[in-house]
């Protein structure tokens, strides 16, 4: 399935469109999605460090999805670098 992932903060620089779309095997977990994103960005945005992506969280509009959670089908996700509000 195709999963759209919106980019924020330092990761916005990885794609001018503000999002990437990945082909994700059905039944994948968030941990597996993270590795797919690391691989995708290594090829398409080599300036983004894999270390940063590994410190990122994934989320829907409503909640953060931790590593063990399945990637929801047909739902747009966001990848969230470490936060620095206030």
């Amino acid at each position: 399935m195709k999963t759209r992932i919106a980019l924020f903060g330092a990761l916005r620089e990885a794609d001018a469109s503000g999002a990437v779309e990945l082909e994700v095997p059905a039944g994948s977990t968030i941990a597996e999605l993270r590795e797919l994103l690391v691989t995708h960005l290594a090829a398409h945005a080599p300036l983004v460090s894999a270390g940063l992506v590994r410190r990122c969280a994934f989320a829907t509009d409503e909640e953060i999805l931790h590593n063990h959670r399945p990637v929801p089908e047909g739902v747009a996700l966001a990848v969230l670098p470490p936060v620095s509000g206030g």
């Binding site: 924020f8 903060g9 330092a10 590994r54 410190r55 990122c56 969280a57 989320a59 953060i64 931790h66 590593n67 966001a78 969230l80 670098p81 470490p82 936060v83 620095s84 509000g85 206030g86």
Partner: peptide, 22 residues
């Protein structure tokens, strides 16, 4: 989920390191 990018006098910019939500 908030991110801060600082802009400096010399024209450079940098995203703050921040606190992981993972």
């Amino acid at each position: 989920p908030i991110w801060k990018q600082e802009h400096y006098v010399d024209g450079d910019s940098a995203w703050s390191e921040g606190c992981s939500l993972c």
